[in-house]
């Protein structure tokens, strides 16, 4: 029983990271209709920036977090403005390919600027071991779970109540009609990219706290992708939950079956789910009236 509990709790902690990255995927998909293949790389870059800041301010957690957030905002805005906006109105395929090119650039730039060694992100917090009953978790694990909950709440309110959130849904539904309403798609895209970059960055920093910064970090993008599909490509909140489900499923598969199954658990879960609901657990079924 304790074993199961341990597996589930650590699964949720991993899943929370997947969830955050997955929300970033869904956010961009919803606003722009694109799958951003550079999501994991964006997360990695922010983590590296956080590490650089941590090295110069000798581990003041607030400075590091603040700096990383600012960096992720700049990164998101810059990518949207410099790379994505010129592609506005071009075929979706070509635009998705651009994000793949972007991924290559960011990945190599990380190694160009920093190095190939893994490094510990030390912000003077996050590594303490906290005991919940008999289960030991690191404080950063608790923090990432709380952050996911917070992000879920924040995005729920954003889409429901904020004008820009509703406009984002409108753009997702019909971009030209949204234009006719005076909604500037470019602005919505900028908001989506920035928000996505910020949550990816947060996930990156947590991941760095828990597993060090390393040039392998971009894998989190591919790992989180099933979560987005599980939750529904266009469902930001669903993707967040999807991450947790995948995280727990992975841990249970590795814990009870064999560690080697872990890698494909997420994919098996989504194939099974797509057989039942072809548009994701929380995705919106395309409304087609003929």
């Amino acid at each position: 029983m304790q074993y199961l509990l341990d597996q589930v709790i650590s699964g949720i902690a991993v899943g929370a990271i997947y969830g955050l990255v997955a929300m970033g995927f869904a956010l961009i998909y919803k606003a722009t209709g694109l799958v951003n293949f550079a999501q994991g790389e964006m997360s990695m870059i922010t983590a590296y920036i956080a590490w650089s800041i941590a090295g110069t301010v000798s581990g003041n957690p607030w400075l590091v977090v603040g700096g990383a957030l600012a960096a992720s905002v700049v990164l998101g805005l810059a990518i949207e403005r410099v790379v994505m906006r010129p592609m506005l109105g071009e075929p979706v395929f070509a635009t998705v390919m651009v994000t793949i090119g972007l991924a290559v650039v960011l990945r190599s730039a990380t190694l160009l600027i920093w190095d190939a060694y893994p490094h510990a992100l030390d912000i003077g917090a996050g590594r303490e071991i906290v005991h919940i009953g008999d289960t030991g978790v690191r404080s950063a694990q608790l923090a990432v779970m709380a952050t996911l909950l917070l992000a879920l709440g924040a995005f729920w309110a954003f889409f429901r109540y904020s004008r820009i959130g509703k406009a984002m849904r409108a753009v997702a539904a019909d971009e030209r009609a949204a234009k006719l309403m005076g909604i500037s798609a470019a602005r919505i895209h900028a908001v989506a990219w920035t928000a996505s970059s910020v949550i990816a960055g947060i996930a990156g920093v947590f991941s760095a706290l828990l597993y060090d910064v390393s040039p392998n970090m971009f894998h989190v993008g591919l790992k989180s992708f099933p979560a987005t599909i599980l939750g529904g490509l266009d469902s930001v909140l669903g993707s967040g939950f999807g991450g947790v489900i995948i995280g727990v499923a992975e841990n249970l598969a590795a814990g009870y079956l064999a560690p080697s199954v872990k890698e494909i658990t997420g994919f098996i879960v989504i194939i099974a789910m797509l057989m039942i609901r072809p548009f994701g657990l929380f995705g919106e079924r395309e409304i087609e009236r003929v």
């Binding site: 509703k166 406009a167 849904r169 030209r176 009609a177 006719l180 909604i183 409304i287």
Partner: peptide
């Protein structure tokens, strides 16, 4: 913003949004 609005062919509502939310978007 200058005051010229178009009602496009085929309505082009924001299908997944509620009526209220569609109206909100008109008054963006």
């Amino acid at each position: 913003r200058l005051g010229l609005m178009q009602v496009p062919e085929g309505r082009r509502l924001f299908a997944p949004l509620s009526v209220d939310e569609n109206l909100d978007m008109g008054g963006y």
